[in-house]
Design a binder for these strands. Sequence first.
DNA 1: TTTATTTACGAAAACGTTTGAGTTGATTGC
DNA 2: GCAATCAACTCAAACGTTTTCGTAAATAAA
Lengths: 336, 336
Amino acid sequence: MKETITIKTLAKELNISISTVSKALNDSYEISIETKQKVWDLAKMLKYNRNPSASNLRSHKTKTIAVIIPEVANNFFSQAINGIEEVARKRGYHVLIYQTHENTELEIAFTDSLLSGRVDGILISVSSDNNNHEHFATLVKEIPTVFFDRVYEDIDAAKITTDDYESTYNATSYLVECGCKKIAYLYALNNLNAGKQRMSGYRDALSALQLEYSDKLTVNYDKNAEVNYHNIKQLMLHERPDAVISSIEDLALPCYYVCNELAISIPEDLKIISFSNLNTAPLLNPSLTTITQPALEMGREAAAILFRILDKKHPEPNEWLTLKSTLIKRDSTACR
Amino acid sequence: MKETITIKTLAKELNISISTVSKALNDSYEISIETKQKVWDLAKMLKYNRNPSASNLRSHKTKTIAVIIPEVANNFFSQAINGIEEVARKRGYHVLIYQTHENTELEIAFTDSLLSGRVDGILISVSSDNNNHEHFATLVKEIPTVFFDRVYEDIDAAKITTDDYESTYNATSYLVECGCKKIAYLYALNNLNAGKQRMSGYRDALSALQLEYSDKLTVNYDKNAEVNYHNIKQLMLHERPDAVISSIEDLALPCYYVCNELAISIPEDLKIISFSNLNTAPLLNPSLTTITQPALEMGREAAAILFRILDKKHPEPNEWLTLKSTLIKRDSTACR
DNA sequence: TTTATTTACGAAAACGTTTGAGTTGATTGC
DNA sequence: GCAATCAACTCAAACGTTTTCGTAAATAAA
């Protein structure tokens, strides 16, 4: 076993006090540059590593943030994490990952456990399984928290979202321009602001363009993929829409399968637009028109906002930043 | 500000010593069940949370593991993380994520920083940018480490990989069965065992089937995506292979684009097989035949091995577990 | 010169746990 | 009936930092 080397070791070696060593390592103004240099040199030479637990315990700074998301194996979220990790690393912060799998119970367990001072701040994209969220009210009072993409508007915290309403509004308008008259909607995240906004954009666009909204043209997301498949198939069989807007990627792909099975050809018989961060969207058969959220950017910005909060000593009004998604037109909506 | 509640608070409230509280919370045999119950009840009532820093500092257990990977925004790795997080959560462990972006310098910085006792163990899939890896030799002596998918065979640590050699061997054989005579290879991870094994499987299958290997049929991965595109295009223009095996997903997709551009039709003119964890592989145009690694399983198993190591007090010989990938045949290799 | 002020450092008390070595009173063995 | 065992606690010393306060010497102001 190696004897672990601490500031005590350094102090003894240099014949100075441990407080001097500590201050030197923290680049305190109280210490002369000569002493600092000696400490730094020795620290490097002995490969000294500050013990994080001891440091945290005393200073209440963990240099760690938590990211709570539904799934990591999801293009949007993994890209967001990418952005988050990037800015965290630049600041020397560590990133903890928690997956809720859209389960509020788990979400509560996570947030509760983070109240113990394990992290300095939290980035969260909330679970969609219900809208019971009083646990966040207490959370945000205790610890700096930034909500991204999936937010609760009535929670007093910083938020960052995309222009969900405009996205579906524009997508719907675009489909109508292409001559579509019967546009179905695959509805997910209906407990969340994002989901509601997307639905509203769709509905408002319909009515602005003199088209009628019908419940029959809406398929609600189900946790069970087979149920989704079945429901989409029923939609296609009985309603035969000429276009469909999917509020999440996971509902667009079954659409492709259903069309395959029913020999509905895209885009001739059915045009498809979906929210998606798939990098293979251009390679699908046919290539998929997507509303693509700036996932990486959102991650970066969310982290940036969090660090801005952590930097301030005094609380400031919470930001609510909105980034723009882009409608990327591809073959699944090609007009003939 | 809330006054934080500690075991001291509990002790005072219950009129017992703080050590009794601590032991009760840790379910020690030294404490009577009645006392334990009282402590637990009060703790729950007051929403007591054990301070992790203090606990770690004293006990040298962090209940945290680190995952070091090249990229999180990658189907294989994000699924692996999913598996890791799943088993970590079951054990009440926390998961730190570090991305190396295939940069050894960063990798070294991360592993060095983890020597400070921030984590109990490490799961790592190494960076591919070079094979300089002496830093791991010291790392694995200091802290339990499990290498997954991308491993160094000469490092004395637990490892988990897939049957890379057999995968390409079988894929190559399959292509030959389909009548292919000029099979190109898109070569990546050439610094790593996985990459070398995949290449060997391809070459050995070729020679076993009386086909000649040629350097001209090999394209080496480049960090620059445009270079890859260009090289693949050159390959197609000048060599006109009738099949291609891609050792990573990121080289297969440019293949599709090149074929589009050059009007090479898949699978008639060119058959394609690629290592891939794309969930949209069946929806590509045409659907892609993949060698799919059990990413989720690998994550789970890697974590399981790590916890097995952490559970043992005495070191045991390191496991090297190998899981099987599956060749999923789709249209990109359809025989007419 | 005397008195402030500054500079560079040290002593010691936290931070909230865990843990090994006592301590006490009750129970057991013989 | 007395030593030995045991169950259920308590004491106090860690763990490795950070940070407040104090102080000596050097410098500046008066």
